[in-house]
């Protein structure tokens, strides 16, 4: 009976959603033609002829995420940081990750994982530093690198974090480095403006109509798209080590963390 109800409700919801999005047109026009808004972003993402409007990045999504609506992304990073802070607040008093005698999974799995981890790190770094040229960016790269923390915890047991030299305090320090780097990139135009008296805007990437300030779009003939590469690398650090922190704390066994957590009782 329970299975029938679940099956019928899933089927009914799917049919309703399919009807709404196709025949009834609830999402508006879903054609293959590019809409005017998309055409505008595609025309402006990388366009050296329109220097006052372009973001100098051929990856249109990266141009939108870190330039056209950069402040949105900044606040998304803040929200993510708040979640990490609350995890740290819950696990306060737990300083050392590790302890206990478990050794992880079998030798075959451990050897294969040992081969996969360097590839994982290389792909993550590649996604981060090419974020302004190809699909990808700081958050994508950070999530990719965070998989390493899961592999370490599951395949090699919790002890492996301290064995490879990753501790909660170091992960938090690296995450904060990423956030400080983001702040540095955001405030650089403002500091430049104050020091030279020229017009410059917060989080400015390339020249504007009334401001000549810009980050270098190319270095040694390589396109780096001004702020985008720096923001992507900084976000990569912040997101990946934020995830590292959370997974290190989550993978702790209950008997290890119970003592510090219960130690701070109310009024006792």
């Amino acid at each position: 009976m329970r299975r029938v109800i679940v099956a019928v409700s899933i089927a009914a919801f799917t049919a309703l959603l399919a009807y709404a999005t196709t025949v009834a047109g609830a999402l508006g026009y879903l054609g293959l033609e590019t809409r005017a808004l998309a055409r505008m972003f595609l025309a402006l993402a990388y366009n050296p002829n329109l220097r006052e409007l372009t973001a100098m990045s051929p990856a249109a999504v990266a141009a939108i995420v870190w330039d056209f609506r950069g402040v949105d992304t900044l606040y998304e990073t803040v929200v993510f940081y708040m979640a990490i802070i609350s995890a740290l607040a819950i696990y306060r008093g737990v300083h050392k990750v590790g302890g206990g005698g478990s050794v992880g999974l079998s030798l075959i799995v451990r050897v294969v994982t040992k081969l996969l981890i360097p590839m994982n790190i290389a792909i993550a770094v590649s996604i981060a530093v090419h974020g302004h040229l190809t699909p990808g960016g700081g958050f994508q790269a950070g999530a990719t690198l965070a998989v390493v923390s899961v592999l370490l915890a599951v395949v090699y047991s919790v002890n492996s974090f301290s064995r490879v030299g990753v501790e909660v305090s170091k992960a938090v320090a690296l995450q904060s480095t990423g956030l400080i780097a983001i702040a540095a990139v955001v405030f650089t135009p403002l500091i430049y403006g104050v020091l030279t008296g020229a017009q410059a805007y917060l989080m400015q990437n390339y020249v504007k109509v009334d401001s000549g300030f810009h980050f270098p779009a190319e270095v040694l003939g390589q396109l780096i798209s001004g702020t985008l590469i720096w923001l992507n690398i900084a976000e990569f650090l912040a997101v990946s080590f934020g995830f590292f922190t959370v997974f290190m704390l989550l993978s702790l066994r209950e008997e290890v963390v119970k003592q510090p957590l219960l130690g701070e009782g109310h009024g006792s």
């Binding site: 994508q140 999530a143 997974f247």
Partner: peptide
């Protein structure tokens, strides 16, 4: 949507099952 794919694969295959398995373990 290749940008979403790149974040969806690590989250859906690695991070999300791992988080839930840690919680089920407790």
């Amino acid at each position: 949507a290749p940008d979403i794919v790149l974040v969806y694969i690590p989250v859906s295959v690695g991070l999300y099952p791992a988080t839930l398995l840690f919680l089920i373990g407790k």
